[in-house]
């Protein structure tokens, strides 16, 4: 068994799991954080995207043991009790999601982008989301939502 202690959404958590356990399974099966989804299990669809030490990663490709001592942000860590995160709010307002299954991963990828690049071009947004597959929407409304959230986060636009 591998012992891991990490920070998830600002809270320190520990678990003892078999060494082959992925970060995704650690989150879903040990901590019941089911917002991150198992889509393809091979790091190609992005439905499991979480932020580790500031960078978006596919949680299905990282071992639980690799996140020992690190800081992980999942979709559950974005909203406060009072308010959605501006990216979440924009995704809601722009009707960016349909079935919603890819949504948490897409939103986390968008956060990973905006944390590093607060004023991305449309092309940069497309690039940042290129690791996230969506089968419902055609991406257009997601890209618009990320642009809008970026404006709000930069303080150029009031949050609705």
């Amino acid at each position: 068994m591998t012992d891991v202690t990490l920070t998830i959404n600002g809270e320190e958590r520990s678990a003892s799991v078999p060494p082959e356990t992925s970060l995704l399974r650690l989150l879903r099966d040990e901590f019941f954080l089911t917002g991150s989804k198992l889509g393809c299990d091979v790091g190609d669809c992005g439905a499991c995207t979480v932020i580790v030490d500031g960078l978006p990663v596919n949680a299905c490709l990282m071992l639980a043991g690799q996140v020992d001592g690190r800081d992980v942000v999942t979709i559950e860590g974005l909203a406060t009790l009072e308010d959605l995160h501006p990216i979440q709010k924009a995704f809601e307002e722009f009707a960016s999601l349909q079935c919603g299954f890819c949504g948490p991963g897409v939103i986390i990828s968008a956060k990973g982008l905006l944390d590093r690049n607060p004023d991305p071009t449309k092309e940069e947004i497309k690039d940042a989301l290129s690791g996230n597959l969506c089968r419902c929407t055609g991406y257009t409304k997601m890209i618009e939502a990320v642009q809008d959230a970026a404006r709000i986060l930069r303080g150029e636009k009031e949050a609705a």
Binding site: L33, E93, G100, G103
Partner: peptide, 16 residues
């Protein structure tokens, strides 16, 4: 109107 589960979709609370 947006999807009835839109908020749950973006927070990860929608249960599959």
């Amino acid at each position: 109107l947006r999807h009835d589960s839109a908020v749950k979709h973006v927070t990860g609370d929608a249960v599959y």
